[in-house]
Amino acid sequence: MGDRPKDLNPYLIEHVRDALAHDPRVGELDVVVEIDGETVVLSGTVATADRQEAAADAVRDLLPNHHVRDETEVADFVEPTEVEHLP
């Protein structure tokens, strides 16, 4: 055993990302996951409000002893105002 402190959070982050991709309520690959102590921080854009809520729920189900801070935003993409001209 080395004397380096064990940081298992990098593994945990990938497990959370995997859960968000595979949870039938979520199906999002693009949520940014960070772990700060006992807090899981979610950020990035999700497609709908239902999926935003489901993502936080999925993390709580996976890590019941962690607190979830949800900083994700629900996409609302309106029509463009510019045209790109090509030859």
Binding site: E82, E84, L86
Partner: peptide
């Protein structure tokens, strides 16, 4: 894009500067 879709126009010119709609 941060918008619903992008618009492109082939107009036979070399002007690629975005134009306000």
């Amino acid at each position: 894009l941060r918008r619903a879709y992008a618009l492109f126009c082939f107009d036979g010119t070399d002007n690629r500067v975005p134009v306000e709609l």
